[in-house]
Write a protein that binds this DNA or RNA. Structure first.
Lengths: 194, 194
DNA sequence: TAAAAAAGAATGAACGTTCATTTTTAGGCA
DNA sequence: TGCCTAAAAATGAACGTTCATTCTTTTTTA
């Protein structure tokens, strides 16, 4: 048990180092030797936990994506109204992107580059199912516009990624007021207009 | 003149090859030797046109960004109403992202990774001024919500990047109906609600 | 004490860039 | 016009470095 614990710590250290270094330098400008150094491990040890560099980054992506969606849906209950549910999930996602900025930046980079295997990408998408289910219910109840899930995502959720990135670059600070405005924009763009 | 023409052709070929290879492989997985091969040029020749690899990708970014904004604002006239102007620019941007998919993918990758120098990034942002001016006017006239330009961009323009990426990945096809819906979402999220 | 985990050094391939050389260009002169 | 030449442009090969991965040895574990 002590042995297993130790291994998990090392794996976590490797994943964490990968995120930080890839965020700052990009995938291919991040040598295994630096990841090893930051995780306080020998380069050779990485290969006890991951097949190779590609496997390391794929697994890191899946880990982070799982953490992200776990956080997003953690307090959501199936008996909420569609509007309540959406508001809750939206705010949890916003929270995550702003508080766990490093993790969110990593996901953004993975989603916009050929860094990740197609298979790992698919794996990551699965975790969004609760949100899709909520939208399906919302459309049935006539509360959410009867348009493609992709469009709903593009206008309601994805803008948060953009805001996170420019906030990270120091262009502006997202405060409570901004977030309220952002939520209103998100909700306006998906709700049925009466 | 023949000589100058020839040089411009070569530079263009290099920029084009860079876009295609970086889109498919990422910046650091794209060797200069492959760029040279695709542009039908010797590796050494690249260094007659660009200082080094970083300079090549910076210049490519600025070129593509300029092309993008030129297209976006080409038919816009200052005497249009705010709503007309926005609709026009929005549709031009959508056009560009869908027709010039390679170019738009390249920009998305640059904007979400540490691939580009901060200076080149700033240079690229300048070109968006006409859109910012339009929004300023819209706010003055009480047509556009009095919120930060970043939020306006996040909800009105940026979703197009997301749609382009998933369309490119084959997840779904953006047709005319989708585009109309997308435009309505965009406009709803920035216009003043009466 | 034997097996598993970890380490550092070694290896071979790939890359960005430069170097020495060849090819092309432009234009002055026969 | 056609030829010559010096400068500019272009090239392929070579260099030195960096990196992912493996190998051999040492350390830790149970």
């Amino acid at each position: 048990m002590a042995k297993l614990q130790k291994s998990i710590d090392k794996r976590n250290a490797l994943v964490k180092a990968t995120i930080e270094l890839v965020n700052n330098n990009g995938f291919h400008a991040t040598p295994m030797s630096k990841i090893a150094k930051m995780a306080k491990v020998s380069p050779a040890t990485i290969y006890l936990y991951f097949e190779n560099k590609q496997d390391l980054v794929n697994k890191t992506y899946i880990d982070v994506k799982a953490e992200y969606t776990k956080y997003a849906f953690e307090t959501y209950k199936g008996d909420m109204t569609v509007e309540e549910g959406f508001k809750l999930i939206w705010n949890r996602i916003a929270d995550f992107k702003l508080k766990e900025c490093e993790n969110a930046m990593f996901l953004a980079q993975c989603d916009n580059t050929p860094m990740i295997d197609e298979q790992s990408r698919q794996e990551g998408i699965k975790h969004l199912q609760p949100l899709l289910d909520l939208w399906t219910r919302g459309k049935k109840e006539g509360i959410i516009k009867p348009i493609s899930d992709y469009l709903l995502y593009a206008y309601a959720i994805n803008p948060l990624s953009f805001l996170m990135i420019i906030q990270k670059r120091g262009a502006f600070q997202l405060d409570k007021t901004h977030l309220d405005e952002a939520y209103q924009s998100a909700w306006n763009s998906i709700k049925v207009i009466k």
